[in-house]
Design a protein around this nucleic acid. Structure first.
Ligand code: FES
Ligand code: FES
Lengths: 141, 141
DNA sequence: ATAAACCTGACTAAAATAGTCAAGTATCTT
DNA sequence: AAGATACTTGACTATTTTAGTCAGGTTTAT
């Protein structure tokens, strides 16, 4: 199981944004430079974040992005959902002969993976962007 | 983040094995049929499980595999480790200019991913094969 | 002997990921 | 009005990983 870059970048970028958007919108170029993430890739990611109303865009010179909610109200699971970083542990193939078909037949481990999925998602639901920013400021990164 | 088939199959197969190895070794062919997993793929997986001493093989006719430890002592993290299903959340690229280089420079989210990794691994360390078998018997699957 | 079952390594196809590239549009500054 | 900055979109590509196949063994009970 691994975390994809897309998910990781989304969180990195938003932590950056949360720290610097107090005065002016933050341009993706700045985030790109500070966090070492490809500008083009950031654009893809922010397009998704905007559609899910996690950030707001400001076009034109001096434009950029701003958080669309309080950092406290943005949880990790919201971010991941927005960028399609979903936790998927079950198989449950519609048309498998044996085992994982999800409906009538559940494989011997189905419940286990369900538990795991919840376990992970709980972690994401608890953490807010604000928590992350605070952590960072404390450690002076 | 998703669980790979290899990891899922390894656990499915071992749960099956744990239920049926009391009298005779269990052949991969039987597991393949019961769980709907490709025999060739199972062989790859069991080769790894054997090397990590989670199962023991019995060659020849009527051969098969047997658990090498008590089901209670086999934890999920042992299984995953054996089949290289590792949890990887950090990036920490050795040679990245900005951000994740892991040594001197840690990106703004490094600690978060570390926490996540621990969170997930704790789940794996707690669950034993015995727990899973019991669950299954209770639910009469 | 022979069949069942383990053993091994190489090979391949498909999917997902991590980007890149190109051609815009909107808005601020001068 | 011109130019620069920065958002917007969609298509395209390379790389990597995963999942699975295949072929050719060896061991051992009967
Ligand atoms: S994971 Fe859902 S039935 Fe196997
Ligand atoms: S994840 Fe370790 S430095 Fe970014």
């Amino acid at each position: 199981m691994k975390l994809t870059s897309r998910g990781r970048y989304a969180v990195m970028a938003l932590v950056d944004l949360a720290r610097f958007d107090n005065i002016n919108p933050v341009s993706l170029r700045d985030i790109s430079l500070r966090q070492g993430i490809s500008l083009d890739y950031l654009e893809q990611i922010f397009s998704k974040l905007r559609k899910k109303e996690i950030v707001q865009s400001v076009r034109g010179t001096q434009g950029g992005y701003v958080l669309n909610k309080k950092a406290k109200e943005i949880k990790l699971n919201n971010i991941f959902e927005a960028v399609d970083e979903k936790v998927k542990t079950v198989q449950c193939n519609k048309e498998s002969k044996k085992g994982c078909n999800g409906k009538s037949i559940k494989c011997v481990t189905h419940n286990l993976w369900d538990e795991l999925e919840n376990h992970i998602n709980n972690f994401f639901k608890e953490k807010s962007l604000e928590d992350l920013v605070k952590d960072n400021i404390e450690r002076r990164i």
